[in-house]
Amino acid sequence: MIRGIRGATTVNSNDADEIVAATKEMIETMAAKNEVDPETIASVIISVTPDLNATFPAKALRLIDGWKYVPVMCMPEINVPGSLPKCIRVMMTVNTPKSQKEIEHVYVNDAIKLRPDLIEEQE
């Protein structure tokens, strides 16, 4: 079955190293919590808020062993007034036997504000 795994994190500044490090940590957590092997990933889509343009967060995937051939794309997030700033969001599409309810979405740093309902379920 194909499932989507969501993830989101925030950074403190528009700094290339910080963006890549935060993205890498989030992606690795998403993969670990959901027992994802890179061979089972169809694609990864990463969006960033307009205040983050120092680098492509997709660079983070190239730093993870075995992820060289995972298709990844970056794009801007919709600039909604009052939305969470300095936010990196991920949609990882994977082949997995897990049900929708078994998928563990990952929201860290200030991004926990985006889906507190999912965070509470996992505690």
Rank of each mutant, 00 (worst) to 15 (best):
A42V: 15
A16P: 01
E123L: 13
T49D: 03
Q100C: 00
I88E: 07
D110F: 10
G4N: 12
L118K: 10
T9G: 06
E120W: 08
E25P: 00
D37E: 15
I103N: 01
Q122E: 13
K86A: 10
T9P: 02
E25L: 14
D51W: 03
T49H: 06
E25Q: 14
V44G: 04
R6V: 01
A58L: 10
E39Y: 10
N79V: 01
M26Q: 07
E18K: 14
L63R: 15
N14C: 05
T96G: 04
M91A: 11
E120Y: 13
T55K: 05
N14E: 05
V20Q: 02
V80W: 05
L84W: 05
I45L: 15
V94P: 02
L63P: 00
K33H: 07
P38A: 04
A22G: 01
M30I: 13
Y107W: 09
P57W: 07
V80T: 12
G82S: 02
T10Y: 09
S99K: 11
P116M: 06
A16W: 03
S99I: 07
A42R: 15
A16K: 09
V90K: 08
I45C: 01
K113Q: 12
D15M: 10
I78Y: 12
C74F: 02
V48L: 07
E123S: 00
E39A: 15
M26S: 02
V108M: 08
R3E: 07
A111M: 09
V44C: 04
S83R: 14
M75Q: 11
M73S: 13
M75K: 13
W67E: 09
R89Q: 12
I41C: 00
G82M: 02
P85Y: 02
G7N: 00
E121T: 03
C74G: 14
G82H: 05
A60H: 01
Q100I: 12
K59W: 11
P38R: 04
V108Y: 08
R89V: 10
D51T: 07
T40P: 00
E18P: 10
K33W: 08
A60L: 02
Q100E: 15
A58K: 09
I27W: 08
G7E: 04
F56P: 00
P116I: 10
V48R: 14
N53A: 11
R6A: 08
